[in-house]
Design a protein around this nucleic acid. Structure first.
Lengths: 243, 243
DNA sequence: GAGTGGTCTAGACCACGGT
DNA sequence: CCGTGGTCTAGACCACTCC
């Protein structure tokens, strides 16, 4: 007795595509046919198909059908940092083979008041109090990334360095503070700063990747601003778009 | 007499959010209310709201309502290369102030046969014939990026260097070959290669950003593999996710 | 308990692709 | 022409948040 029909259909179809029951470049059965197979309406089937499409597995063409896309090879990716909760999320990701080898050092933990310059960076308001947390991300003991985060104190209450050393998102959940709703992020490549060279194992590289992330609570409040700076050659971000 | 109701509603609400008719952190009117205002069903309103949500403007919370998210500042972005048709698309983007200052040089244009190594890179099949095109992207005469592209010849027919010098996507449209359906991309930071140093104005930087892109036709065929390698500090990619 | 968004049904008509 | 996906209606029930 499943709760979400469309997500069951999604799972089933996804498996069948992976098992090549439906082969690349062929079309799936029509929506009407799928509807009667799963004993739901067309709308519900469409919902499942839309998910498959946003995963990049299929593509719907009016008048022709839903086409299965050819798969691509994907060996060289070290791991996909797909802009979620950051490194904590990677650790909980079941497919991730690297979990054991990841660790975190909190280098800095302090309260700061938002001035004009910081307002420009974080989009918080001048006068707000924020926690500044600098966390070093280690992989096999090598410093591969550093997170510079600002969190609005008014939303977090009194947090300690120890909380930050575990997981801030865990702290939020455990204290039932709010839910994370959404995030906006931008990716750039930048010159390494003095601080980067100090704390990161960049080797002889003189630039870093930067992932700047704004995180919202479910009441629409900007809650976190984090810039992750990471050394080259170890990370990759994936994305899919259909037109 | 609009053709797509939901997209009209989307436009209207988007404007009203920008004009602060609905203020950040407040909720929009309920779906029922919006439905009667626009004289459509709730489903159609929901469709528009979903678009707004994937734009990162609002976020829906069950039991509470649709919350308007706080806007963020976004000055420092040079331009958004959001994985579209590449540089040609940027040129056609109306908001882009940099159009005049962009130009392209085709450095290499040749046919190659796909061997095992190239199959690994492109996911094309061994034995396929592909066009290899190396295009230098200039901004104010500075070489800021280079595209290394492979196109399946079987899908393109006989293309000339001149076609590549204009726009390959224009060539496809003009000849009515097929439609572009979707693309998958990954972003990484990599060490600069000898070739990068040769053709790009990297200055004293020794690494580059790399955007690797797989493009599909609407029949589900992998058609293009492009790796864009760009110098640091000039580009940014934006993204939005909701949970 | 009242009001919100989330899921689903059972229809309908249209635009488009292929024959 | 027929079959496909795209849009839309008019209902229904549920889960959740807030008072």
């Amino acid at each position: 007795m499943p709760k979400k029909l469309y997500s069951d259909i999604y799972d089933t179809l996804k498996q069948e595509i992976n098992k090549q029951v439906y082969q690349p470049r062929n079309t799936l059965p029509g929506e009407e046919e799928l509807a009667s197979r799963f004993d739901v309406t067309r709308n519900t089937v469409r919902r499942a198909l839309k998910e498959l499409q946003s995963d990049g597995l299929v593509y719907a063409v009016k008048g022709r059908g839903v086409v299965v896309l050819e798969p691509i090879r994907d060996d060289r990716v070290v791991f996909q940092a797909d802009n979620t909760e950051g490194f904590e999320a990677l650790r909980n990701f079941p497919q991730n083979k690297f979990i054991q080898r990841l660790s975190t050092d909190v280098l800095t933990f302090e309260e700061v008041e938002v001035d004009e310059e910081l307002e420009k960076l974080t989009s918080f308001n001048t006068g707000d109090v924020a926690y500044f947390v600098e966390r070093l991300r280690l992989f096999d003991g090598k410093a591969l990334a550093v997170d510079n985060s600002y969190f609005r104190k008014s939303l977090l209450g009194d947090m300690t360095r120890e909380d930050a050393e575990k997981s801030i998102y865990e702290y939020i959940r455990d204290n039932g503070l709010f839910k994370i709703a959404a995030e906006r992020s931008t990716t750039t490549v930048e010159s390494a700063t003095k601080r980067d060279l100090q704390v990161l194992d960049v080797g002889d590289m003189n630039c870093v990747g930067a992932l700047t992330k704004f995180v919202y609570t479910d009441t629409g409040r900007l809650f976190e601003h984090t810039q992750t700076r990471y050394v080259p050659n170890h990370f990759s971000m994936v994305d899919f778009k259909s037109f």
